[in-house]
Amino acid sequence: MHLLYIDESGSAGDRQQKHFVLAGISIFERQSYWIASELDKIAERINPADPMSVEFHGSPIYGGKKFWRQFEKEQRFQVLKEVLGVFAQSNISNRIFVCVFNKEKISPNDPVELSFEQIASRFDHYLARLHKKNDTQRGLIIFDKSTYETTIQGLATDFRTIGHKWGVLRNLSEVPLFLDSKASRLIQLADLVAYSAFRKYEHGDDQFFSIIEERIDQVGGVKHGLCERL
């Protein structure tokens, strides 16, 4: 089974921000323990006395907020790069899916709904490609608990029964699950991937996204895992 951990960056309703990002990391189930363990090791170095209190979230680390206020900017940026590097160095079967919308270009449509439709259908197509190669796998989408939970659950049910613009989701084993990011290093990693993409598109800062950009799902140079409407 492939697990797609998804989180967003940028606020769908904030008029001061031009872009909304939804990003997911697709991880083969046997890889999830290794990645989480590597992230735990980083947390242990940061706070040996209480590593589980260390949470990897892009905006607080970048801005030096709350727990991260005690660290210099260079140290915080290094943490972001090291965590993203764990995914970049993981098994090649692990992929990234990213959807970036300029909110003005899609108005009055809801960026949350449109981006989830894109991510879910592209993940489903990825699993269908594996099936054609005799590697039949089911998928499960996992979100951070958020205000979008009701919207996402309803959309996912519709996609599996009524369909989306490009068909019906056929390779997912269940409707999306929602976890507290405090309990999941992989949700935290998805947060950092989404934030790194937001930094690139909103601020022209590519120092973080460049670390994991090659892991976007692609075939023959075509980036199936990237949706941009800029």
Score class of each variant (00 low, 15 high):
197 A>T: 12
21 V>C: 12
12 A>S: 07
91 N>L: 02
13 G>M: 09
183 A>I: 10
79 V>D: 01
27 I>N: 08
35 I>Y: 09
175 V>N: 14
178 F>W: 10
169 L>T: 13
138 R>T: 02
96 I>Q: 03
10 G>T: 11
29 E>Y: 12
168 V>Q: 09
214 E>C: 03
48 P>V: 11
57 H>Q: 14
169 L>M: 12
228 E>K: 14
62 Y>A: 08
1 M>D: 00
50 D>N: 15
121 S>T: 12
137 Q>C: 11
84 L>W: 06
151 T>W: 07
90 S>D: 01
46 I>H: 08
109 N>V: 05
151 T>G: 02
93 S>R: 05
67 F>W: 01
41 K>C: 14
98 V>M: 03
187 I>E: 01
222 V>Y: 06
199 R>I: 08
17 Q>K: 15
146 S>L: 11
65 K>R: 12
162 I>C: 07
141 I>K: 02
167 G>I: 04
185 R>D: 02
186 L>T: 10
31 Q>H: 15
171 N>A: 07
128 A>H: 10
6 I>T: 09
153 Q>D: 11
162 I>E: 09
94 N>D: 11
209 F>L: 07
183 A>T: 09
98 V>I: 10
10 G>C: 04
63 G>A: 11
91 N>A: 06
93 S>G: 08
120 A>F: 05
174 E>S: 14
43 A>T: 14
70 Q>K: 15
137 Q>S: 12
155 L>A: 09
106 I>M: 01
47 N>H: 12
90 S>W: 02
8 E>K: 11
205 D>C: 07
40 D>K: 14
228 E>P: 01
230 L>I: 14
63 G>Q: 13
190 A>R: 11
176 P>F: 13
63 G>P: 01
17 Q>L: 06
78 Q>M: 02
13 G>I: 05
63 G>I: 03
191 D>M: 13
184 S>A: 06
145 K>L: 08
186 L>A: 03
9 S>A: 15
224 H>M: 07
150 T>V: 09
230 L>F: 13
72 E>M: 08
47 N>M: 10
100 V>L: 02
30 R>A: 12
133 K>R: 11
117 E>Q: 11
215 R>Y: 10
147 T>K: 12
165 K>N: 06
51 P>D: 06
38 E>F: 05
210 S>F: 11
165 K>L: 11
66 K>W: 08
186 L>P: 03
98 V>R: 00
223 K>V: 00
73 K>Q: 14
